[in-house]
Simulated assay, not measured.
Amino acid sequence: MSPTTAALRAGWSRGLIELRQSFTNGADLFSHFFWPVLMLTAMFFMRDTAFGSSGLLLGTLALPGILGMNAAFGLVTMSQLLTAEREDGTLLRAKATPDGMRGYLTGKVVSVSGGTLADLAIFLVPGLFLVDGLELSPGGWATLAWVLVLGLVATLPIGAVLGSIFTSARAQGVLQLPVLGVIAISGVFYPITALPEWLQWVAQVFPIYWLGLGMRSALLPDAAAGVEIGESWRHLETVGVLGAWAVLGLLLAPVVLRRMARRESGSTVAARREKALQRVG
């Protein structure tokens, strides 16, 4: 067995173990259920509200957008985990083993994507019973699958890049604000056509909007495209933008991770730990 294959297999096993542990730990379980329950509560209150004169319910339009938003949040999760494990020395231990960084990153992709899929299922299954007007078909489920896979490939490597840039878990708060701002303008809870045109252009640069659009195209009837930009689901544009983010992330992530790993040493981990203890004291 080649060293690369061994590292990938070890990473796969590590990721599955971490995923299983996240469903046996109280804090992680709370994290898995908190956002889906919060979003389901929001869906409950908007389920009977109509969007303008379109004849569509706001809850029906919002459910697929929330799915796209939660899928994109894998970026934040990946970034937070990478920064936290860089701070506590986990990354340094991975670096010290043969092909350890490749196995470590594989494990993180497996655990984060698996946790994201579980969170989506926790939200989607009760959501299907909560709102009316969804159109479920084999073609729709196939669209949901490819949008989700492409969306994860587009966001997780970018999350790894951001996790390599931030030097402490506390600095991750800086990331939350712009992500929340992008969510607010991405048509998650309300069709983006209700926003000023310049904001629509800004939102279309980022993957959250396209993930939401792809999810809506999978779960809503064709008539719902009438409230979208160009009155179309724009699948080609979805593939193009998400594909561009995926290529960018896959090119940047290995380079940034290698540079970050080279700078890691026992002394830098100890210095960060001492600084953290000083803040607590």
Rank of each mutant, 00 (worst) to 15 (best):
M215D: 07
M215T: 08
M215F: 12
R216H: 11
R216Y: 12
R216M: 13
R216W: 14
R216D: 10
S217N: 12
S217T: 13
S217W: 14
S217A: 15
S217R: 08
A218C: 13
A218G: 13
A218E: 15
L219K: 04
L219W: 09
L219V: 11
L220A: 06
L220V: 11
P221F: 14
P221R: 02
P221Q: 05
P221D: 12
P221N: 09
P221A: 09
P221M: 10
P221C: 09
P221Y: 14
D222E: 15
D222F: 06
D222H: 09
D222M: 05
D222Y: 04
A223M: 03
A223H: 01
A223D: 12
A223S: 10
A223F: 04
A224C: 06
A224K: 00
A224N: 01
A224V: 08
A224E: 08
A224H: 03
A224Y: 09
A224P: 03
A225K: 00
A225S: 14
A225C: 03
G226W: 00
G226P: 00
V227I: 13
V227D: 07
V227Y: 09
E228G: 07
E228M: 15
E228P: 02
E228I: 04
I229M: 08
I229D: 00
I229K: 00
G230I: 03
G230Q: 05
G230N: 10
G230C: 06
G230K: 04
E231V: 05
E231N: 13
E231M: 11
S232G: 00
W233I: 02
R234F: 04
R234Q: 14
H235S: 12
L236F: 11
L236Y: 07
L236M: 04
E237F: 08
E237I: 01
T238Y: 11
T238L: 10
T238H: 05
V239H: 07
G240K: 01
G240C: 04
G240I: 07
G240R: 06
G240W: 15
V241N: 02
V241W: 08
V241T: 03
V241L: 07
L242P: 09
L242M: 12
L242G: 08
L242Q: 09
G243S: 07
G243Q: 05
G243Y: 07
G243D: 09
G243N: 05
A244K: 05
A244E: 12
A244D: 07
A244F: 14
A244W: 10
W245Y: 12
W245M: 12
W245P: 02
